[in-house]
Design a binder for these strands. Structure first.
Lengths: 221, 221
DNA sequence: CTGATAGTTGACTAAACGGTCAAATCAACT
DNA sequence: AGTTGATTTGACCGTTTAGTCAACTATCAG
């Protein structure tokens, strides 16, 4: 399951073969088919497992004991940091695995599509709660918290997709700022690192898209 | 080129085989390899051609002779209508072909990735101009038109992705409204169809996501 | 120790795949 | 009519793919 999660994220669902999965997992194909009917079933199980591994992290970030604005800010920065690590590890910006997979299989496999949907829905849930709490606390105006959450979630997905397509972490520098603009609130000061103003992380963002490196990437390396 | 554009959109890039392309195009494989070195080269050429076919439509929609707000509104509705037609034709919401393709090939093929990037960039260009014009005309406040355009574009991409993943046109019902909320302006009255208020197109949006049909879609139909 | 059950293995198939090629066809020009 | 170069064709090749299977092994309860 770990093997397949990495493969369909770094490569693609269709291009990932059962042989590759087995090799990566150190398992023979016969064993694979003993447990799973086909690739789709494995991916389905893998998604569920990865989500269960991810959930406690979100629970911590979106803890009700943290001020709502801080939850949302922390989540943004968590996502960016995660992408940084992945880029360092795999050499590419990978973006949101649910989008990558979901986009590819949506016209092929209804079951998988619905699983992806379900997980995305959970994400919107966290956001909705935080936004509702912030509204109740007067941090911002969002009478319809769910609608606001959907809008922000959509923006965030769009940014992740672009980060992958541009293969550029610079795109994500906008994440926090953009999110709070949509929220109609100021980005809260970081509560953990340094003093006030520590949130400023070198705003080389603006021209990031144009500066996209022209390094000689060949086809099918 | 037409064949491949349809296939990698309705199916997926990796899953689309050269044989399929040739069959769809009514061409023998030998002929194919006479003109293109491989699939990637064909897709590259196809993208360029499709973009050239698409460009005049955008030119018309974003014509400087049309009020800026109306350009943006018309574009939103054009996109939605296009998706409706595609759904009617192919049975699935296909979303943005650039995202579908870009997401899949971004870690594989640098050349294709950059071509997708370039076309997306053009899209942001149209939006930037319209936003700048609107700002100059006092329709909205957007001193940094480019930044605003990027934000809106990101939102729109996010929505398209979700429409595909959810396989639900209902998601797109938010497109115009969301766009203009980000713009900080009211949705202009439709100028072509019916009298004032004609823009209201049955707001069944709200629950759309939950209502996502549970029809029995099997794997690999 | 025994026997049942769960898991593992590598060899196997049949189909599909990307890609090649020599020969045939076509269109245009001399 | 003959020459040339661009295009088309279908047969072909080696590889990769998903998926199968009978035989083997580890585990563990009785």
């Amino acid at each position: 399951m770990t093997a397949v999660a990495e493969l369909f994220w770094t490569v693609s669902y269709d291009r990932t073969t059962v042989d590759q999965i087995c090799e990566r997992a150190g398992v023979k194909k016969g064993s694979f088919y003993h447990f799973f009917a086909d690739k789709a079933e494995l991916v389905d199980a893998s998604l569920e497992r990865e989500w269960e591994k991810y959930r406690p992290k979100l629970d911590a970030i979106f803890s009700a004991s943290v001020p709502p604005a801080e939850r949302i800010r922390a989540h943004c920065e968590f996502v960016v940091q995660e992408q940084r690590d992945l880029k360092a590890c795999h050499g590419h910006v990978l973006g949101c695995p649910l989008c990558t997979l979901g986009t590819e299989i949506s016209t092929q496999d209804g079951t998988l599509r619905r699983r992806v949907q379900g997980i995305l829905e959970h994400g919107i849930g966290y956001l909705t709660t935080a936004i509702r709490d912030g509204h109740a606390g007067g941090d911002w105006q969002a009478p319809d918290a769910r609608a606001k959450a959907e809008r922000i979630h959509t923006y965030q997905l769009g940014l992740m997709i672009q980060a992958r397509i541009y293969d550029d972490l610079g795109v994500l520098a906008e994440l926090t700022r953009g999110t709070f603009e949509l929220l109609g609130a100021a980005v809260p000061e970081s509560t953990r690192v340094g003093g006030p103003g520590a949130a400023k992380t070198k705003t080389k963002t603006k021209t990031a898209r144009v500066t996209a490196k022209t390094r000689a990437e060949n086809r099918r390396p």
